[in-house]
């Protein structure tokens, strides 16, 4: 028995829901708008070309003589991400395989809990731990110890739980019948993994990898604390580097006018990278579910 008051309430409710949804989804637009608005002065006055062709990163000399070479920071971001993904992807997969196919039940649960807890540790703690534990060890190999390798190792630790948890969720979707079939054929565990599990899990694993990459690209605190923050294109793993994110964190505090605008350009570049990865992932997810 709907009264008139009830239908009016329903209408108010529906508009409330719509309003909140529009508000929630407009945040992304606001972010893009403010990034663009703040970057525009730099894009107009300096131009994209100079971010590549300038000789150096000298953002706060006398006005007019500033140089804004972003390439070293971009290289540091890409290299540290690449290194971390190269280690964390196989390690995360192996950790998930351990939980599903190798470990006794109690150990699998323990491993799962540990991975969950690792995922919950904040990046500033990873950075701190890297600084007090990892960096002194690397320092003995090659001073000063704060370098690209330290960044890669800390990033690896940070994205490993993401990859391991998603890989684990993918492995759980493999039909039991296929595994039983493999067992009935007398296949060894490795042959089952290679022939049955990995091909079936491949799409899900790729999505896990993309999400891990996304997390590594955007990470700030940990790389800020362990990478050494020297603006240069690294020639070895032991060179200190400064990523795009670390550069923003270091310089936003005092940057003004053109310099500030260039920092927003690097934020825009990060955003573009992330949107690209999300687009890839959504495209991929769609093509998977269609099959």
């Amino acid at each position: 028995m709907k009264t008139r008051g009830a239908t009016r309430n329903d209408r108010i409710l529906l508009w409330g829901l719509r309003g909140a949804s529009v508000l929630a989804s407009s945040i992304v637009l606001l972010i893009v708008y403010f990034l663009l608005a703040e970057s525009l002065p730099a894009l107009r006055r300096i131009g994209i070309a100079r971010f590549v062709t300038d000789g150096d990163w000298l953002p706060s000399t006398a006005e007019g003589e500033n140089q804004y070479r972003l390439v070293p920071m971009l290289a540091a971001t890409l290299l540290s991400t690449l290194g971390a993904v190269l280690i964390a992807a196989p390690a995360g997969l192996l950790s998930a395989v351990f939980c599903h196919f190798y470990a006794p039940k109690a150990l699998a649960t323990l491993q799962r809990r540990i991975v969950e807890l690792l995922a919950g540790i904040p990046s500033v703690i990873y950075g701190f731990w890297g600084l007090v534990t990892l960096v002194p060890i690397l320092q003995r190999l090659a001073p000063p110890g704060q370098n690209l390798l330290a960044g890669i190792l800390v990033l690896t630790l940070m994205i490993l739980p993401t990859i391991a948890m998603l890989a684990s969720a993918t492995l759980a979707t493999i039909p039991q019948a296929h595994l039983q079939g493999a067992a009935a054929l007398g296949l060894s565990r490795w042959t089952t993994l290679r022939g049955v599990v990995l091909p079936e899990a491949a799409p899900g694993l790729l999505i896990a990898l993309l999400l891990g990459t996304m997390r590594a690209v955007g990470e700030t605190m940990a790389v800020l604390m362990v990478c050494g923050n020297v603006v240069q294109i690294p020639t070895s793993l032991f060179d200190p580097v400064r990523t795009l994110t670390a550069n923003i964190a270091l310089e936003m505090g005092y940057a003004t006018s053109e310099h500030r605008s260039v920092l927003f350009v690097s934020g825009l570049a990060l955003m573009a990278l992330v949107v690209l990865l999300i687009g890839l992932q959504r495209q991929f997810r769609r093509s998977v579910t269609l099959v």
């Binding site: 992304v28 403010f34 690209v217 955007g218 990470e219 992330v274 990865l277 999300i278």
Partner: peptide, 14 residues
């Protein structure tokens, strides 16, 4: 989905 992937430093800039 996009918002969930935005790096935290970009949230800081915004």
């Amino acid at each position: 989905d996009v918002l969930a992937g935005v790096p935290s430093i970009v949230f800081g800039l915004f």
